[in-house]
């Protein structure tokens, strides 16, 4: 059953459509990666799905009672606003210390409770945001450019984590990325966006689609790489300052 369906979705800022005729369907437990260059309407699509932007035309249908776990691209916290990781996790629903500890442990950033949100590294912030998004036991996780600012091992580790989360909870994942060359291995579907949907399919299909190469101007040789990770090694961690490993 579909969690989110859009039909002919068009969003305009003023007269110019930023997105046009988007037909997208996200099924339960599916991992969908949306890639597109800057200005291709990725964030607009996310904002429309979240219900922040109203469609100029077309419709968005969400499953009744759909719970969305949203991980924003960044969290620009004003320097005047003091907030610890622990306090942040209790928004908007207050949770117990135990639940908070488990949530942080699950994403590999245990022990950060008393840190200020503004003092976290990019990787730590991503994982804290993910912890919070998972607290509501979402039907779908929506991640906006979650790997921005992470190095390659960081990206690999984060993708592995998302896969594990999907496996454990069965939630669908909608992941938006400006990285045209690398997508998550576990993606069930890759959608190429540039104002409209250029092509979509399994990573392998998109990899060989002429539209993909035409749109992004990548040579056949250096095309879409699929993030492979190997299960025979220990998973990477984001190393927090002062965090010890056993």
């Amino acid at each position: 059953m579909s969690l989110i369906t859009t039909q002919g979705l068009t969003i305009s800022h003023g007269a110019d459509p930023v997105l046009r005729d988007i037909d997208l369907d996200i099924a339960e437990g599916e991992i969908v990666t949306v890639i597109g260059p800057n200005g291709s309407g990725k964030s607009t699509l996310v904002r429309a799905i979240l219900g922040i932007l109203a469609p100029s035309a077309g419709i968005i249908r969400r499953k009744k009672g759909l719970r969305i776990g949203y991980v924003p691209q960044k969290l620009a916290i004003d320097a005047t606003l003091p907030i610890t990781v622990r306090r942040f996790l209790s928004l908007p629903t207050r949770i117990s210390d135990d639940v908070a500890r488990q949530a942080l442990t699950r994403t590999g950033v245990q022990g950060l409770e008393d840190r200020q949100m503004a003092a976290l590294s990019g990787g730590q912030l991503q994982r804290v945001l993910l912890s919070r998004a998972l607290l509501s036991q979402p039907d779908i996780l929506i991640l906006d450019e979650p790997t921005q600012g992470l190095d390659h091992p960081g990206i690999a580790a984060f993708y592995t984590l998302i896969e594990e989360v999907r496996k454990d909870t069965g939630c669908a994942v909608l992941l938006v990325s400006h990285d045209l060359h690398v997508v998550m291995r576990a993606s069930d579907r890759v959608v190429c966006l540039n104002g409209h949907i250029c092509c979509q399919g399994t990573p392998g299909m998109v990899q060989s689609a002429p539209e993909y190469h035409a749109l992004f101007g990548v040579s056949e040789g250096g095309a879409l790489a699929i993030y492979e990770h190997h299960h025979d090694h220990t998973h990477d961690h984001i190393h927090g300052e002062g965090c010890t490993h056993d």
Binding site: I52, S90, L91
Partner: peptide, 19 residues
Amino acid sequence: WQGLLLATLNPELATAAGV
């Protein structure tokens, strides 16, 4: 308070949480 705080931190996060 809770809604105000979340909307102040990030309007998108608030909307996604039904605030």
